[in-house]
């Protein structure tokens, strides 16, 4: 037990030290530039966690959205809420000190598998199984809270609506680990995920285990959802998976381009959102999402202008190739 404790302790100390460095750097920058909000350590953590989420969420979200699974984030967020309720409930009943994060990850992952299982076993549409899991998660959370009102309800509130001030150093360290895991897994399986997203049957013919990669994607989603939960609030987590991705799709031609654009747009939304929420004392999750939607609208307009400009060029090239195709048989 001590050996295990020590094994976890060393990397955690390293992470905590790195996060401390980040904090010192931001504080120094705040002093130099006269930015008042950078005086607070919780803001340093909020910016760090926000930036990490703004990489992970669009990274996973790009695959989800283009597989028409945009709602899965919503479903998993609601079950993660149930997971938090389970953790708080168990702690208050048994007097244990389990992090609600851990129970949220576990419950959300079980829910991710349940979504797959329900559509496989009952032959239902994917969105039906998502809706069932979403409702179950929220209902379970609500029932557990009602069983033990008082202390629980206060605890739940921050998970529901997000709170910048609750990002502790431990939370930030957990997010860094999550970020590393998600980035590594997506980098390693990028090609398979892309192939499955683009053309499932051809992917199967190419020897890819589609069911396995579907499961991987939902599991990663569950992890990202739980990671984003405390800063965004469960209700708005899904927006980070979807809105920057939808915005990027308006202007990008290629998939890699779309992936990068969605990360950049998410960074803008999160950093601007956190700043505004501090300045005007508004809820972080809501502010970030509103900024993201603003970015999305901007991209829609940019996309329209872009396609209007390229229509003329398109017709010219297409016409030439069609003509080429007709000539070639005679060659």
């Amino acid at each position: 037990m001590t050996a295990l404790g020590d094994a976890v302790r060393a990397p955690y100390d390293l992470l905590a030290w790195l996060i401390g460095l980040w904090s010192d750097a931001l504080a120094a920058a705040g002093d130099a530039l006269g930015i008042g909000m950078l005086d607070y350590v919780f803001m340093h953590h909020a910016f760090l966690v926000g930036a990490l989420i703004a990489v992970m969420a669009p990274l996973i979200g790009t695959f989800l959205v283009h597989r028409q699974l945009a709602l899965i984030g919503d479903a998993l967020a609601h079950t993660a809420f149930a997971g938090v309720a389970v953790g708080l409930f168990v702690n208050s009943v048994l007097g244990t000190g389990i992090s609600p994060y851990i129970t949220a990850v576990v419950v959300a992952m079980l829910a991710a598998l349940a979504i797959e299982l329900i559509s496989e076993v009952t032959d239902a549409y994917n969105d039906v199984s998502m809706a069932i899991v979403l409702s179950t998660g929220f209902a379970l959370g609500a029932v557990l809270i009602s069983l033990n009102t008082g202390g629980l309800a206060v605890g739940i509130n921050q998970y529901l609506f997000g709170n910048l001030a609750t990002v502790s150093r431990e939370n930030a360290a957990l997010l860094v680990v999550l970020f590393l895991v998600v980035s590594l897994v997506v980098t390693a399986t990028y090609k398979q995920l892309l192939y499955v997203t683009f053309d499932e049957t051809a992917a199967r013919v190419a020897g890819i285990n589609v069911a396995w990669y579907n499961r991987l994607l939902t599991t990663l989603t569950a992890m990202v959802v739980v990671g984003a939960m405390q800063i965004m609030g469960v209700i708005l987590v899904a927006a980070m998976l979807v809105v920057p991705v939808a915005a990027a799709a308006q202007v990008a031609r290629g998939f890699r381009e779309a992936l990068l654009a969605s990360v950049v747009l998410a960074q803008i939304a999160v950093l601007l959102g956190i700043t505004l929420s501090y300045r005007y004392e508004t809820t972080a999750g809501g502010t970030i999402v509103l900024v993201a939607v603003g970015v999305y609208i901007g991209m829609v307009i940019a996309g329209r202008l872009q396609s209007r400009r390229s229509v003329v060029g398109d017709t010219a090239v297409t016409g030439r190739i069609e003509a080429d195709a007709e000539e070639s048989p005679g060659d």
Partner: peptide, 25 residues
């Protein structure tokens, strides 16, 4: 197969990226 655009109507992906998938295996 039949044109899969119905499924990927809004997916941003270039022709070169789609063709490159043939190299993936």
């Amino acid at each position: 197969a039949q044109d899969v655009t119905e499924n990927t109507k809004r997916m941003p992906i270039t022709v070169a990226e789609a063709v490159l998938m043939g190299r993936f295996p």
